[in-house]
Structure formats: structure tokens, C-alpha cells
Write a protein that binds this DNA or RNA. Structure first.
Lengths: 204, 204
DNA sequence: ACCTGAACACCGTTCAAGT
DNA sequence: ACCTGAACACCGTTCAAGT
């Protein structure tokens, strides 16, 4: 059935479909995506330039699902920035299978400008110098990206032999959760530390 | 020439060769690696189980190049931890083309135990609680990983149209370097903030 | 034990043909 | 404009054969 009266595909559907495929299979292939969308692989190339653009559409869809950042700009900067970081990471956490594909580049696409604009306004209003703001956002983003990858990291296993040669490592690992709370704890710890460090930069 | 008297390949050479290929081509393929090493692609499978293991060998080689962490354990924890983080990231920075391949998982391989052991010992000696140490290391590692990816991130471009809709973003971008110093600055800023935040966790 | 060369299934992309 | 089906170059991996 060539040329259906109402198009089977559009960029939005492609992005969302790719995200589903990556979620289910832990990887993305064009044939798998075409199957998911009920079309032939070649049909996709009428809407996107190639695989790379599909991944960009996945990022766009992910951001959409993260929801609007509707935080109140009159609120204090710290809880607002924290909420932004958490929702950003939560969006990744909702798609663990897609993380290795998506967390390899910051969401520096045009549709992200609105988000950056609000964060920049927030930090400027908080009293940070203009030259400080972008590095701060950048650093926080790096931490979030790395923490997203940490969501799908294999657990650190210390073998019994290593127990003798690495007593301190063994000791600190014993006191650390091995399940999903490990990554949560690392994220919480780092986020808190970053915010504390940011606060110390403000004039008093 | 099958079965040379002295083997053409070993795991060490494979890891180093793969790193060179990724550096030069920005990607790794088995045929390209085989060409680099002067063998047939199938020869590789006598030494590694597959592509995934080759990437693991690349990480191993990267760590080797980062050099031994020979910091003095009697030194204060903060400059030592900072030096560790910087050398870790510098290893990535030396192989920008390989970063997307390598920065997707923490170096949680067995050969990393020695490194973790020393950092754990350092932080315990500094007075951090046993339950705090692993989350701290984990958080720092996430930041380093994200910062490594940032090394190869496309520059954030704000078009002229966006200038009107995103005045704050435009303002803070004007005060930020667009070249390689952008990523340096973000890393320095985040690292400093993290260390400050860590310090605040210590009992006084 | 270590390498080659042929072979296989699969992938991303292109393009002529159909409506 | 939008989809199909055939086709192409390429990739990761396997395996029999050679020393």
C-alpha cells in the first residue's frame, strides 16, 4: 500500500518509536524501528536524513516526556536548580535501555534553548556573575549525563581474592547498597555537593 | 603466512591498536583494527571474545596511559583527590576520538581495583564515614565521565533569532569561551564545587 | 597455538517504481 | 508526497583448512 491518504510516519512518531525499540531491545536498529512502526526501512528516509537524526529525535522525545520545566522563577534558585537536575535525570531513568544511545551528548539542540534560557535567568537572578553561569550549567549537565550512564553500569564486584589486596575498598563497598539505590545515592550525594559548592561561589 | 613463529597479536597490542584506530577514525570497526594490526579480521577472535571485549581492552590501555596514581597517601585528601580526577579526565582528553566509545561505562573492571583501593583509603583516612566513601567516589566518577563526553560535544550555538527569545542565555554565552577552554572551565568549576561540597560533609 | 580466506546473517542507505 | 522492494557496500562473527 504505497502512498496512504494519511501518512504513516512523521518525525514525532519516529522519535517515540525509536525510544520504544531502544527500551525493549537495549539497542536501536533501523529494521527494528521500521517493524515497530509497521513500515519498510526505506520509508524512514523520507522523513529523516539517517540514523544520527533519529537519535536526535529520540532526545527530543525524551525531553518532551521530561515535561515542561514549570518551576516558579520567583522561588529560590537552589531548590529550582535541584528540581531541574532531578527531572532531567529522571527522564533518562525512565529509559534505561536507551541511555547509552542518548547520554553521549548534551541536549544542545535548538529545542533546548528554552530550558537553558530559564536556568540562565534563574542563576543570574540568584546573583551569580554572567561569566560563571554557563560553566555552572555545563558542569551540572556533565554530572547528570554521567549519572545517567551510571544507571546502566554493571555493579562493582569485588572478588574474594581482592578482599585481601583491597581491604579499604571492600570495607566501603560493604556499607553501600548493590541494587538500584547505589546509583540513586551517588546521584544524591553528588548533586548535594555540587549545590553546596555553587552556593559557596555567591557573594555574601 | 599462517602460524608465525612469534605471535602477531596479543591482547595488549589489540587494545592499543583499537585506541589508535578510534583516535584516527573516530570510530572502531573490526576490519579497520585488523588492517591497523596487519592481520585478517578473523585472527582477532583467537584473542578476544568479540567487539565488546576489545572496547574493554581499550579502557585498560587508556588507564595504563593515565599512568600510576603515585600520589602520596600521607598528603591531604583534597589535592590528592583532585589530582586523581584530573589525571582520569586527562586520559580521556588524550583520546577524544575514542571518548564516545569509552566513556559509556565506568572503569569498573578488575584492574581498576587498585585505584579504587587507594582512593577509598584516602577518604577513610580523611575522616569520611565508611558509608559515605563509595557514593562520593561514584559521584566524582560520574562527573568525570560526563566531562569526558563534554570534550567532544558540539559547541552550543545560539542563532540570531534565538537572541531575542533567549536574552539571558545569549548573555551568559557571550561571556563564555567557545573553544576548548569551554570544557576545561566547566570541568574546573564542577570539580571545585564537588570538592567544596565533599569538604562540607566532614565532621569538624 | 595462531593465522587465513570463505562464508553467513545483518545493518544502514540508496533508488527506481508505484500511487 | 509517501511508501515498497530490490540492491549495494559494509560489518561482526564463525569455521574449516593450513602450518
Amino acid at each position: 500500500m504505497p502512498r496512504p491518504r494519511t501518512p504513516l510516519l512523521d518525525r514525532r512518531r519516529i522519535g517515540a518509536g525509536a525510544l520504544r525499540v531502544a527500551d525493549e531491545q537495549g539497542a536501536l536498529s533501523i529494521p527494528a524501528l521500521a517493524r515497530e512502526l509497521g513500515v519498510a526501512p526505506s520509508a524512514l528516509y523520507h522523513h529523516v536524513s539517517g540514523r544520527e537524526e533519529i537519535v536526535a529525535l529520540m532526545r527530543e522525545e525524551l525531553t518532551r516526556e521530561a515535561g515542561p520545566d514549570d518551576w516558579d522563577p520567583s522561588q529560590p534558585w537552589e531548590p529550582s536548580l535541584e528540581a531541574w537536575a532531578r527531572s532531567y535525570r529522571a527522564a533518562f531513568a525512565a529509559h534505561p535501555g536507551a541511555v547509552p544511545l542518548l547520554a553521549t551528548a548534551p541536549l544542545a539542540e535548538p529545542f533546548m534553548h528554552a530550558k537553558y534560557e530559564r536556568v540562565a535567568a534563574l542563576l543570574l537572578a540568584a546573583g551569580f556573575a554572567a561569566g560563571q553561569v554557563m560553566p555552572l550549567i555545563n558542569a551540572l549537565e556533565n554530572f547528570i549525563l554521567g549519572s545517567a550512564l551510571d544507571l546502566v553500569a554493571p555493579p562493582v564486584m569485588v572478588s574474594d581474592v581482592a578482599r585481601e589486596t583491597a581491604p579499604h575498598l571492600s570495607a566501603v563497598l560493604d556499607g553501600t547498597p548493590a541494587d538500584h539505590r547505589r546509583a540513586e545515592l551517588a546521584f544524591d550525594t553528588g548533586l548535594r555537593a555540587l549545590l553546596t559548592g555553587f552556593r559557596a561561589l555567591l557573594p555574601r
